[in-house]
Design a protein around this nucleic acid. Structure first.
Lengths: 243, 243
DNA sequence: AACGATTTGTACGTATGTATG
DNA sequence: ACATACATACGTACAAATCGT
């Protein structure tokens, strides 16, 4: 049932590198056979025969696709259709941020801009779809932040959960994954800043303000609460540029 | 001057696959030496010696990094620090869209949501920073769209230029690249829809409305003009689900 | 628990294509 | 035209992980 169009790469036509050709064929195979995430792909050797390439080339192509989470390779088991996460975006952006963050942190600042824009832009409709249960969970997370901040501890995971919970009821997977991705990028790049302990207390309070604005059903208030929530990190970035 | 910390991977410690180890080392090398995009990296053979891995592992690692545009390889020339584009996001998201687009087009719909959210959220400040020259260019692009639409032609490139020009004066590289990336994803996935010729005429007119709102300095009008601009593609998606 | 079959991971060798001088 | 340096491609052999018997 090997159906990878075994046309032997007619004649001299060789547009790009071999691995790119192979990667394209594998993607076409997935589309043509309507495979879904988690489905098994042919073995490397079968792919070699099907596409007429060496195993090295096939492997390099598969590694490219796995870096994009289009496929997922499990040692000793097989190659599967990937989960299509935004891992590639995170890795790429995070590295860019680390590279630029040695001097200024302008990439980090841009990430904060995007996060704020998305959350503010979706705030109004978030209020409409947030039910009582969601509001209670957000409030509980804000409580937890305030407790941890009072103890001088950080609350990375709680913060992550908060922002995801805020966007979750919109029912848009992509927005949820972008929220997650940009949060991760900030979590990776931000530690290169020195963070003031009092900033954490302020940040916890600002999350409380967001919850309050949601409960009050006040879109404009929510937008400004979100903006103020990002003020401490912006201040840290500004401090880092001119210390 | 090879400085890739040639610790021979002490003893039995082998957390992940070899290529992941190598990829991490290469990233560390770039960061440690403060390399910038375009700078030359050591040759594959030098990397092999430095990290104590075989050619195959090094190549697979480099291919992963090149898929993320962290490095860029030029045949017969060498390996360089990459341009850090969002190519990985485009490839990953576009494939996801194609995969889901065989039945419904919910991924395409989510991409449209994100594009609209970003543009609406930035519309207000875009008005503030757009100068006369920008407005003239936007107007010229809208003219061009209307002309092409009247002739029944498509205007993909003009549309792309329009949306980039709208976000350009904000001075945020990341937002510009996200605009470009999501546009590309839509351009790749949308052709799987059948597009009505009259939709193009309407879309051209909606771009004109955006220009007018910018010229009038009317943020609320601009936001609704942007929303209406995406109406035709939303309608196409809805038609595709139940034809 | 142990073994073998299957599949991916790593290593090495050789030849070829490509860009630079 | 030639030489050098580099990436590309192929093939083979063996190691490591997973699964079923």
């Amino acid at each position: 049932m090997t159906t990878i169009d075994a046309t032997p790469l007619r004649g001299t036509e060789r547009p790009g590198p071999r691995r790119q050709e192979v990667a394209t064929r594998i993607k076409e195979y997935i589309l043509r056979n309507r495979l879904k995430p988690g489905n098994l792909l042919p073995t490397e050797i079968e792919l070699c025969e099907a596409v007429g390439a060496s195993r090295s080339s096939v492997r390099e192509a598969v590694k490219i696709l796995s870096a994009l989470d289009i496929v997922e390779v499990r040692h000793g088991h097989g190659t599967f259709v990937g989960r299509m996460s935004l891992n590639a975006l995170v890795e790429s952006l995070a590295f860019r941020g680390l590279l630029s963050g040695e001097e200024d942190h302008h990439v980090l600042g841009q990430v904060v801009d995007v996060r704020q824009t998305l959350e503010q832009g979706l705030a109004a409709q978030a209020i409409d779809v947030l039910d009582e249960e969601h509001r209670a969970e957000l409030s509980a997370l804000a409580d937890e932040m305030e407790n941890l901040a009072a103890q001088g501890k950080d609350f990375l995971e709680v913060d992550r959960a908060f922002h995801l919970k805020l966007m979750e009821p919109l029912g848009n997977d992509l927005i949820l994954q972008l929220t997650e991705a940009f949060w991760q990028v900030q979590a990776i790049v931000a530690p290169t800043l020195r963070t003031e302990p009092e900033d954490r207390v302020i940040t916890a309070q600002r999350h409380r303000a967001i919850v309050d604005a949601v409960a009050a059903g006040d879109p404009a208030g929510l937008r400004s609460a979100i903006a103020e929530h990002y003020a401490p990190i912006r201040a840290s970035i500004a401090r880092a540029v001119q210390p």
